[in-house]
Design a protein around this nucleic acid. Structure first.
Lengths: 235, 235
DNA sequence: GCGCACAAGGTTGTATACAATCCTGCGGCT
DNA sequence: AGCCGCAGGATTGTATACAACCTTGTGCGC
């Protein structure tokens, strides 16, 4: 007699349309297909995705909670533009949380987890080779989220997820350095440490990786955002 | 010539109805006026607050993002019932974040902040004296949020806020020990350390305070939830 | 020419109506 | 008796209609 699983698999449950829209928008933002500051009109989105404004509003509210979009009452929703102060805060928070999750991930990682991380890194390399910068940034973020997930701390993983979502915007606004090579080696090294179960090393690598990223941001001037929307979303 | 404040006071801006509803519900949950597991029917709430279901749905979605309520597709919204595993995670996360914020708060606290904290503690004592346990738990949580705010790390403060919201549910479900006196002294001592700008001491006090709280939880059996709703909300 | 008041258009906020799904209770079958 | 299947009612999900607000452009007055 075993207790029933409180959350059974439910494999064939149709996902909510609002979640689908939110994920589509989220992806577009993460891949830098929509610039920070872009207005997300409700009618426009409703037309694009073929659903009613009700669904669009739910999706936008969801993204607003992740701080990916900024909803101003009676004004509309805009892709968020984190300030320099917010950018600092986000990276400080990451530097506080992620080294810990990396250590924990090294302790808990199962072979399947390692395999997934390896696939991620392969995808990253492919995106870099194709010079698809938006996709590379997106995958790089997913790598961090995956590590937090493996750490078995769902709560903290959720926080990391929102931090990385915002990091994507921050990179879009303030990234300066050209080479993303540092990332590549950093992620490789992290994976090795986790694979070997070397927690302290994973923690150190994560910390220095984040410091690298943080220092690669240019907080003195802001790049130009804003462009059309429908164009950015189709295909 | 001074830069305009990016977020001006806006004193006379009418708050969104959905936010008002969300806050009212949040308060009721925090004060343990609605038990975990209670169903929150949309029509019922719409009637109670005199708004349409549209507004209620927005409020519920907002609370769902804070993990205060659990929305199951086509089933409805229920006050969340964190599992023991989630309870552990929440307190582990708090033990990671809050000591840091306490130290930072000690470094940044201004006289006005100290005064606000003192008022909070006075309110707490009053609630305890009136044997209003729900209110005492709520105020105790606000004290922690206030400290995170003072630390000047809005991002982390936001995380702490959600963690404390969930802590309130966890306390409702798993609290065992009778005396809340520990809290009282702990908060007093924390305030003194912050007032004196003694960061390391504030950090230590916060850590041990959280460990105390964590160890006061009973993770072996769950208390009985569920009761009516309208009754719990009126007055 | 510059600035302000006001109207028109457009977008968001809210309410309501309809559709889809789930839960409950009853009836029949094994 | 116990279990399965099936309506009926109720609740949630989605779409649409209306109201409130903001934005923009025009024209008058200074």
């Amino acid at each position: 007699m075993n207790m029933p699983d409180p959350t059974p698999p439910d494999p064939a449950k149709p996902a909510a349309p609002s979640d689908a829209v939110a994920q589509a928008l989220s992806l577009a933002i993460h891949r830098h297909r929509i610039a920070p500051g872009t207005k997300l009109g409700e009618d426009e989105l409703a037309e694009i995705y073929g659903v009613s404004r009700t669904v669009i509003r739910a999706a936008l509210q969801s993204l607003a909670h992740l701080r990916l979009v900024d909803i101003r009452r009676n004004r509309g929703a805009f892709v968020a533009q984190p300030s320099r102060q917010e950018a600092r805060e986000v990276f400080e928070a990451r530097e506080l949380l992620e080294p810990r999750t990396a250590r924990s991930a090294a302790a808990h990682a199962k072979p399947a987890d390692i395999a997934r991380l390896k696939r991620h890194i392969a995808d990253e390399h492919a995106a870099l080779a194709a010079a698809d910068n938006g996709r590379a940034v997106h995958l790089s973020g997913l790598f961090h989220v995956e590590i937090a997930r493996i750490a078995g701390q769902g709560t903290i993983a959720g926080f990391v997820e929102t931090l990385i979502a915002r990091s994507s915007l921050i990179v879009a606004l303030y990234w300066h350095r050209e080479s993303a090579l540092c990332e590549r080696h950093a992620h490789d090294a992290l994976l090795r440490a986790i694979e070997q179960g070397d927690g302290p090393r994973a923690e150190d690598l994560m910390r220095s990786h984040l410091v690298d990223l943080h220092s690669a941001l240019d907080l003195s001037h802001r790049s130009a955002p804003a462009r059309s929307l429908k164009e950015a979303l189709e295909t």
